[in-house]
Amino acid sequence: MVIECKHVWNYLSDYLDDSLSPETKELVQRHLEHCEICSAILDSTRNIVVLTADDRVFELPIGYSERLHARLAQEIESNEARTRKDSGD
């Protein structure tokens, strides 16, 4: 059985995740071997997924972590104070 490009595109995401059935995977692979357009679409999609996952894409604001932990410290402190009050200290 031969499948067309349009059908292959529908399988690309599952192909990248290696979650196709062995039969469908085989069909897709055979198509990719001779179709340069679908191969380029697959390669570009995979490349974009890898780039998107890279930690450098999203930059953290300077001081973000310090501000976060300072706010948490306040919350934790007031929580402790409440607990002390509740237990009658």
């Binding site: 357009i37 380029a40 679409i41 390669d43 570009s44 780039l51 890279d54 450098r56």
Partner: peptide
């Protein structure tokens, strides 16, 4: 998808 004839890998250093 965007149709291409070939794809030259964009290395992560591009980031």
């Amino acid at each position: 998808p965007a149709l291409l004839r070939d794809w030259r890998e964009v290395p992560s250093e591009a980031l």
